[in-house]
Amino acid sequence: MTKVTFKIWRSNGSPGDGKFQDYETDITEGMVVLDAVHQIQAESASDLAVRWNCKAGKCGSCSAEINGRPRLMCMTRMGDMPEGKPVMIQPMKSFPVIRDLVTDVSVNFRTKKKIKKFKPRPPDAPDGTWRMAQSDIDRVQEFRKCIECFLCQDVCHVLREHNLHEEFVGPRHLVYTAALEMHPLDVEDRRGDLKDEGGIGFCNITKCCTTVCPENITITDNAIIPLKERVVDKYYDPIMRFFRIFK
């Protein structure tokens, strides 16, 4: 058992309010950062706000910045923190703070709603079912692992530094769109939306989103780049356009 100091961001959510506050608590083997936050809550700060649900890395609620890095608090082991140094915990910077470590992520729900929903082709079999080969859905299943933690949205400079939430849907929603566009049954076309409202052009492939994804989704290479190619195919490729006109 060792005593560790935590520097936790406390804020009442109004603009300009907030400061780091120090807390000390005992750490035992196997503890994760979220355990430490809970312990602090029980011992000395019963009103310390933190969002969590599963404590198993499955729901994507407990996103925060630990020592400056966007991570899930429940999947960050204390043992992996540098020894003898305080642990710094801040809310995600890309989103407005509600209180302490809790941010207002509602923009993500609004953004998703604007993306055209799944539209399947007519069923393949008389009983209303479809046939799909496993090899054709592996890619989509990778995207569907997303737990909507919004850490990728947090790290993406377009949202983080430039606050372009209204202009750019961000990596999470590009992954979502990719899952729909590459779904073998889907017949909707979202390429125009991606280019315009989606603002896919804002992404300059820095790959920061891929680095922080706790589900190890290869966001940039597997989702964003292929989507960019599809958009280019439709709107900028002269030969393709030529064929489309005369089809």
Partner: peptide
Amino acid sequence: VKELEAWGAVFDRTDDGRI
């Protein structure tokens, strides 16, 4: 369960492409 597939769920597949 079949209805979920119509709404976009992607279950693992059998060799002949069913759920």
